[in-house]
């Protein structure tokens, strides 16, 4: 367990006992790494801010550059929410169109991508809620059958029997059973890799709400996966 944690979850700047003698070197490297990360973030914000200004100034190609930069991330975010290839293109067009129209309201001291994530997240949450309203209750046999049909058919653990595509189907089903708000924060954190600060900025909520919502979402997801015997 210790080795596992040390390999996967050591925080930047954390020093293992084996390399205490190199602490000064590690600290220096950590400081350099953090400064480089901060510099990169500043450069990204500056670049995006210039593209936003040019777009508002009438340069349509600047907006296309923004779309090019963030298409893949927003596409992944939307796909992780909707899980429907046939809805993807319309959803992405709606999101980028909303972003384009809302550009004058973008505050340049924010990160453009967290602002874009907010628009995309709100859109997806709205779509999921509407979709659920259209669905009959989960108690309905047809719906239950539909969900069960999407689950891999095995009594063994995922590691033992499920193929990668089956695991994907399993997790997607579990995610789809979460409240849209919980699904959203899980996707942003676990799949898009947003930090707690970025989550707060993207969702326009405080750090306390980020932590409590994320904890509740994870608890719910774990319970669903346990019920599926997936973990």
């Amino acid at each position: 367990m210790r080795g596992f944690a040390a390999l996967r979850f050591v925080k930047p700047g954390r020093i293992s006992p084996a390399c205490e003698g190199q602490s000064e070197v590690v600290d220096k490297e950590t400081r350099i790494a953090r400064r480089e990360t901060a510099d990169e973030a500043l450069a990204v914000r500056s670049r995006d801010s210039r593209l936003v200004s040019r777009t508002i100034g009438g340069d349509e190609e600047a907006f296309e550059d923004l779309v090019r930069l963030y298409y893949d991330r927003i596409r992944a975010l939307v796909f992780h929410h909707l899980h429907r290839e046939d809805e993807l293109d319309d959803a992405l067009q709606d999101i980028f169109l909303k972003a384009y129209q809302a550009l004058p309201r973008f505050r340049k001291r924010s990160n453009f991508y967290t602002w874009l994530y907010r628009i995309a997240s709100n859109y997806c949450i709205d779509r999921l809620r509407k979709r659920r309203l259209e669905l009959v209750s989960l108690d309905d046999d047809d719906t239950r059958d539909s969900i069960e049909a999407r689950l891999p058919n095995s009594s063994q653990s995922p590691e033992e029997s499920f193929t990668s595509s089956e695991k994907v189907a399993l997790v997607r089903t579990a995610l789809g059973m979460l409240d849209p708000l919980f699904q959203n924060i899980i996707v942003l954190r676990e799949l898009e890799g947003l930090s707690y600060d970025e989550l707060a900025e993207s969702l326009d909520i405080g750090m306390g709400t980020v932590k409590s919502r994320l904890a509740r979402a994870r608890t719910e997801l774990k319970k669903i996966l346990e019920d599926m015997d997936a973990i």
Partner: peptide, 11 residues
């Protein structure tokens, strides 16, 4: 659970 989630990461 996180390992399972990681299966979704690549789009």
């Amino acid at each position: 659970m996180r390992d399972l989630m990681a299966e979704l990461k690549t789009v």
